[in-house]
Simulated scan of single mutants.
Amino acid sequence: MTDLRIDLRIDLRRGGLITAALALLCSVFLVLPANADPAPFDDCPPATLCLYSGPGGTGERRDFTDRQSQESHGADWDGRTLSAKNNTALWACAYVDPGYGGLFETVKPGNSDEYTTDARFTGTLSAHKLVPNRALCFTGYERCPDNRVCTFAEPNGRGAMTVHLPATDPATQNYGNRHGAGTALPASVWNRTAKHACFYPEASFTGTWDDPASQRKFGAYVVLRGDSTSLPKPFAGTFRSHELVNGTDACQ
Rank of each mutant, 00 (worst) to 15 (best):
G16K: 00
Y200P: 04
R148A: 12
S188R: 04
F199Y: 10
L130H: 05
L90S: 09
D11I: 13
G159I: 00
D211Y: 04
L32K: 06
F29D: 08
G57P: 00
L224Q: 15
P170A: 05
V222D: 06
G182D: 10
L25Q: 08
E114Y: 01
Y115F: 15
G54W: 09
A23F: 14
D42E: 13
K217E: 11
Y115A: 08
S230Q: 07
L12M: 05
E71L: 08
V189C: 04
R67F: 11
N246I: 06
A220H: 10
R216H: 15
G74S: 02
C198W: 05
R178E: 10
P33S: 00
S126F: 01
Y175H: 09
N147C: 03
G74P: 01
F152V: 06
T81Y: 04
T183P: 06
L8S: 12
K108F: 11
F64G: 00
P155R: 06
V163F: 10
D249R: 08
D210W: 15
G110N: 04
G57N: 03
P33K: 01
D169W: 08
V149D: 01
P234R: 11
W91L: 00
P232I: 06
R5C: 08
V28Y: 08
A75F: 07
I10Q: 14
D227H: 02
S72T: 13
Y221E: 07
G99Q: 04
E243Y: 07
A236P: 01
K233M: 11
S204H: 15
R143C: 06
A47S: 09
P170K: 06
A119S: 13
G247W: 11
A250V: 09
Q68L: 11
L224R: 15
I10Y: 10
H73C: 09
D7G: 14
T193A: 08
T208L: 07
L130Q: 10
E114V: 00
R225T: 10
T248F: 03
E202G: 15
A187F: 05
G16D: 05
T116F: 10
G207V: 06
E202W: 04
A197G: 04
R120Y: 11
G176S: 05
N147Q: 09
G182L: 06
S188G: 07
L24W: 12
H242F: 13
D7P: 04
R9W: 15
S69A: 06
T116M: 09
Y141I: 12
L103H: 15
T19N: 06
T122G: 00
R5Q: 12
T248D: 03
A167V: 12
